[in-house]
Design a binder for these strands. Structure first.
Length: 114
DNA sequence: GTTTTGACGCGAT
DNA sequence: CATCGCGCCAAAA
């Protein structure tokens, strides 16, 4: 089963929507889970996100709000604070503690490599 | 049709 | 700890 790239964006959206409140994940985790092979595809898909997509929960491996610029300023940080998280200079505090791994959450639902 | 950039991540030095 | 390079796919110019 090969996932269409157009569907992949939907997978990303669904995945992001499945992120528990107060939890954050990384582009690499999403890319790895969906088998995109490249974190760039995650951003590519995310760039199509709408107001219904809590993309603010998606950060890089450092917990830095990489895409906050596309949220329209500091909105992303505000949202994360609303989630109960703490942001310090565009970086999630205790990011590792609040890190949400899709592979662990879904228990490897989509395994591309046999 | 070709080239460059793009919400990037991660490893290595 | 900081900096650099690599890989990866797709869209837009």
């Amino acid at each position: 089963m090969k996932i269409k790239k157009e569907d992949v964006c939907q997978y990303v959206f669904d995945l992001v929507l499945c992120i528990p409140k107060g939890r954050v994940t990384t582009y690499g985790a999403i890319a790895n889970h969906l088998g995109l092979g490249s974190p760039r595809m995650v951003g590519w898909a995310l760039k199509q996100c709408t107001d219904s997509i809590p993309a603010h929960r998606v950060v890089n491996h450092k917990g830095v709000l990489t895409g906050k610029a596309h949220f329209g300023g500091t909105v992303m940080q505000e949202l994360l604070e609303q989630e109960g998280l703490k942001i310090k200079k565009d970086q999630v505090q205790d990011f590792k503690t609040h890190f949400w791994d899709p592979n662990t959450a879904f228990n490897n639902t989509c395994d591309t490599k046999t």
